[in-house]
Design a protein around this nucleic acid. Structure first.
Lengths: 204, 204, 204, 204
DNA sequence: CATGAATGAGTATTCATTCAT
DNA sequence: AATGAATGAATACTCATTCAT
């Protein structure tokens, strides 16, 4: 029993090390340029061990994507008493961008998009998580605000996409084409402008 | 002289054939899966000739992208007498989507995005053309509409991005993750809703 | 002591299980395609245990071959009172083919032959058992028949090889090149013809 | 035209060199131990060139086998005026053994047999050529001898197999299990004995 | 004594690019 | 100028064997 536990612990550590090294490598090189041998070396594991854990390069990549997608986060704790509507919109925007940039969702999305012809299912799943699921959690916040009379009654599904669309247009889209993209210094100001527009349309 | 002309014509024809075959192949396979030999064969040219025209696979890809980007189109002819504001917004939206889908800009963007780590400059240039330049031409139309009193005075640069952002959110973004994406049947209705929002914000 | 006995029994069971699984696997896949891990799994043993019993893949194979060779059988009980010469020849032939096909000697021979360049000694030994020793036992029967006046005096060593050669030509040789070979429906008739020839040459 | 001719010549030379090197290597190592890289090196060719000529290791092996099978030879020129029956039987036997040993048919057969589970079709074809076709040509000689009254009328198909079976039993079978097998010093004497038996059965 | 995770050497195959004719 | 044969470096994946627990 203790032996099994030990083995599992060691194995889990290696698995994690592999996933970490793989993420790094995929981010640096993209899918096709990434090399299994190099990933193994960087994870301090033999290639055979790597293949014990993940059947193929594609399986490994899928696992990396899945793992990263889990940090898509929920926005449920964002509504705090005393917050103005603008406060909340601001917090939502920042939370959105944090996930996108700090969790490297951006870079991973690039790679997934690259693999659309080769691994369509993976891309569909990632879109489901990174777009649809995310929108759902955002929409829940919108609905809550409507219910509390902070926003006027409207189709929250649409307003959510409008907000997400604008954030992407301003910050995600350019990042997709630039590996070194950093959020611009006037990010906060831009977010305020977005809030203006949003409130003009949907303010109570 | 006539011989030279002839030679140049033949050469140009081959160059065009190569570019066409390469576009096809890149779209089908993505960058790394595409093969120079196959492209040469499909262009009815020897590999050596292919390399006479394009130094490397990357050079060829850059040329393909550049060529495709030229069809980004301008929207200058869109303003017609008798058009309502809504008519024009509708036409702009459709023109935008036509470029995006009929000219396979979508698929090409996927490939360029894939190559961001390997060919950053190319991606930046494409973004410049496909996003900035396009926005500029759209913005010119907006400005014209403001001038004519069809829209209330406002920051056209921002409203343009808002419009483009929404179009991307609804139609481009999902297409990025799905090689077989087709414009949905209710595309027209969605465009009308976008126009509603736009007019609510910027209508004269 | 009893503990030791128990241990030995368990160990022997595992050994037998391994040999059985290995035979199966070798027959299915041939030597080089067979996998030690798979054999271990099929024998319900860990790879380490497998290696405790057999030093290497080749050792294991040798053991498998040796074990299978023991069923080469002897033909001593074949002479029964009241049998005609033809009866005995018929029984000898059938016994020969039974060993060859039912005991999978055919398939094993294929594998051993395959390994001649890699394991020459093994092949030589198998030939010794499967050909020479077998011929010896057959020859003993021939000699007995000569002694009893059932066959005319002659060189039994040669006549044995003649008989064995014909059986191989007709039934073994084609089976060597066809994994799915089955004894043909007219096997019995062919055996009678062989007996005819044999009696014409060596009948009393 | 001359260019094409030249290219074809060079290409043919390389192809031949590859086949030669491959034959050598397969004979030395068997199929699975043979290495494409080593074959390429021994043929003084790059691996890529090797693969230009032969799609895969199996294709290459099939080509090697096919090439070797062509030297199975025909026995039509064997009947010469003035020859006794015994002369002819002797010549047939020797021709048979020459093909078997000098043309390395023996060694190749070993490898083909080894690959029966992996490449059944190849083995079947080789059996067709090396056994059936060969027997047919031998049988034609038998029939001719019967027609000329040199042998008494009989089923030549059967007598051919009897002869071939005996030759295999004495000389081919042991060679199958011994890579270094050489024809024994008393080969000639054994052939005479076979002729004795044959004549006893089928002599005019 | 048994386990199964870990190893690292080995291999077929591909592909962008060059070169002799 | 055009060809297509030739290159060699690169890479995902396998497998017999060992070792820490």
């Amino acid at each position: 029993m203790s032996l099994d536990t030990h083995r599992r612990n060691v194995s889990d550590k290696k698995r994690t090390a592999i996933l970490k090294a793989a993420l790094d490598n995929f981010l640096r090189n993209g899918f096709s340029r990434a090399g299994m041998a190099e990933i193994a070396r960087e994870a301090d594991v033999s290639t055979a061990t790597l293949y014990k854990h993940f059947d193929s390069k594609e399986t490994l990549f899928a696992a990396v994507v899945k793992r990263a997608s889990q940090s898509v986060g929920d926005y449920s704790g964002i509504l705090e008493p005393g917050d103005t509507v603008r406060d909340i919109l601001r917090k939502l925007s920042k939370a959105y961008l944090t996930v996108q940039f700090d969790h490297k969702a951006n870079a991973l999305m690039r790679i997934v998009i690259a693999e659309v012809p080769g691994a369509p299912k993976l891309a569909t799943e990632m879109y489901e998580v990174l777009a649809n699921r995310r929108n759902d959690t955002l929409m829940a916040v919108m609905d809550a605000m409507i219910e509390r009379g902070m926003l006027k009654p409207h189709d929250a599904a649409f307003s959510t996409r409008l907000g997400a669309g604008m954030l992407k247009e301003l910050f995600v889209w350019p990042a997709l084409f630039d590996a070194d993209y950093k959020l611009p210094p006037d990010t906060d100001k831009k977010i305020e402008v977005l809030a203006d527009v949003f409130l003009e349309l949907y303010g109570a």
